[in-house]
Structures are given as C-alpha cells and as structure tokens.
C-alpha cells in the first residue's frame, strides 16, 4: 500500500501512532491547508474532531519543532479508497484558543467543532454557526476544561428532601 498522505505532509512534523499512518503536527496557520491537501490526496472523510485540554500534563511527547500549548485540536481523517487513517494534532494557546474551521473542507465537522467549542472553549474561525450544542446557551464555562470545577454548581432536584 502506498502512502497517499506523503506529499501533503511533506513539510509537517510527523510521529508514528497505533492504527494510523502518521500523526501530523502542523502549525496553526498551516492547519487548514494541510487538511485541504490531505482531502485532495484521497482522504474523503473526516471521521472525528475533538479538542483536548492539556492543562496539568504539559510534558507530553511531541516531535521536534512543535511547542506544546494548552489546547489541542485532534482530527482523524479517513481514506476509504486507500484504507488508511491520518491523525492531525494542532496546538492552540491558552490566551487565544482559535483555530481555523475546516467546515469548508469537510462539512461534516459542523457539529464536532461546535462540540469542541461548547465543551472546551476552542473557537473555530470561519465556522458558520458557532453556538453551543450540548450545553444550554447561557451556560457559563466550558465543562471539559481541566480547571472547570466539577460539582461547582449545586444541583437540587425538584421535590428532593432537604438536609435532615
């Protein structure tokens, strides 16, 4: 099987992974163009997009030339014709957690980018409808962030007996 992603990932730091051809670490500015060239190379589907908050775990293994940031957007691309997968991990700094939306390349990421925005507060520039998707609209904070206080909001169920 030839490596169809080789050309598109020529200038991108790479790592090996389980079940994927490559794990690519493009710079934030090159992220969208790398994804677009991967789609042209035969990756027809974006299987998954999610965000990770690396607060408290900064020392993860990254290839040379990639500076770790607090947030990461992880995209799993799938090529049905070549039966191969490529994972892309983009770093997004805490002060400005914005990456380009790849909605123009894969419209199927619409809900996934909204989920990453909703739960982690990573914003996607160019997304057509960046609203919360799982949480109520007036919810404060982003629950999957590591500094989000779990159990911070006391939940009182209706008709629940009070403290005895």
């Amino acid at each position: 099987m030839t490596d169809i992603s080789a050309d598109a990932l020529a200038d991108v730091p790479l790592a090996a992974g389980i079940g994927v051809d490559h794990i690519a670490f493009p710079a934030r500015s090159a992220y969208k163009s790398v994804v677009a060239s991967l789609r042209d190379a035969g990756f027809e589907m974006c299987a998954d997009l999610c965000g990770v908050d690396y607060l408290g775990h900064p020392g993860r293994a990254l290839p040379d030339g990639v500076a770790p940031e607090r947030f990461e957007v992880v995209v799993n691309l799938l090529s049905l014709s070549a039966k191969s997968r490529v994972r892309i991990r983009v770093q997004a700094p805490e002060a400005d957690p914005v990456v380009d939306s790849i909605f123009d390349v894969y419209p199927g990421v619409e809900a996934m980018e909204r989920e990453a925005y909703d739960l982690l507060g990573i914003r996607f520039a160019g997304h057509p409808d960046l609203t919360r998707i799982l949480m109520p609209e007036e919810w404060e904070g982003h629950p999957l962030r590591k500094d989000y206080g779990s159990g911070r909001v006391p939940v009182q169920f209706k008709e629940a007996p009070g403290p005895r």
Binding site: G19, A47, R87
Partner: peptide, 8 residues
C-alpha cells in the same frame, strides 16, 4: 502508559 490512541 502515556500516549494517545484512536480506535474505531
């Protein structure tokens, strides 16, 4: 062990 993986 440390690492990350995506299993479909």
């Amino acid at each position: 062990p440390e690492g990350e993986v995506y299993v479909p």
